[in-house]
């Protein structure tokens, strides 16, 4: 973890934004949490420090980064999973993990709830989608291993989507006699 009173040094911002709606990551002693108004929260679950920690300046991060984009942001991405929560209990949650690069078979993993901040606890429910990235975070001339999990803030269901599905469903039901 990065100590609160460690010296600061800026991280180079990406040359261009990768999203129309970039979000802001604020460095904290517990690593990266987003501001309350942002759509995505980054949470560091665990990290192994390999050098003198450096405090960072706020960093603009787009959503759903690609491998190359992560790299340009000072993060060497080694593995990215798209996750869906399957099972939740008081202490942990279990999820299905799908390799974003489609190189690996699907995996399952159980995470401790305590690894996520209070603000995130309400997002842990069956069906909740998240992204889990593993790689190296560049710090000056050194790097540290990092694991970052953030829940996706997708737009809520729109009434129009739901209403539009009704005639299609009725037509299908009639066609295949699903009744």
């Amino acid at each position: 973890m990065i100590a609160a009173d460690t010296p600061t040094a800026p991280i180079t911002e990406p040359r261009s934004s990768f999203s129309d709606r970039p979000v802001t990551v604020q460095s904290t002693p517990d690593f990266q949490f987003l501001s309350a108004a942002s759509e995505v929260t980054l949470i560091e679950l665990k990290t192994t420090q390999t050098t003198t920690p450096i405090r960072r300046q706020p960093l603009r991060v787009p959503r759903l980064l690609t491998f190359q984009e992560w790299s340009r942001l000072g993060f060497i991405l080694l593995q990215k999973w798209d996750g869906v929560v399957l099972e939740v209990d008081d202490e942990s949650f279990t999820a299905k993990l799908i390799d974003s690069d489609e190189r690996l078979p699907d995996h399952d993993a159980t995470f401790l709830r305590a690894e996520l901040p209070k603000e995130e606890q309400g997002l842990i429910e069956p069906g909740a989608p998240f992204v889990w990235t593993l790689g190296y975070r560049k710090i000056g001339s050194t790097r540290e291993r990092a694991s970052v999990l953030y829940f996706r803030r997708l737009p809520p269901w729109d009434e129009r989507e739901i209403v539009a599905a009704e005639p299609r469903a009725e037509e299908l039901r009639e066609c295949i006699e699903w009744k």
Partner: peptide, 23 residues
């Protein structure tokens, strides 16, 4: 769990209670 990258292998095992392929 076995990952081609030793760094991912180690970090994933540290970050989870358990992890494994749907083998």
């Amino acid at each position: 769990f076995r990952h081609p990258s030793p760094a991912v292998q180690k970090t994933a095992e540290e970050a989870t209670v358990k992890i494994g392929p749907e083998q």
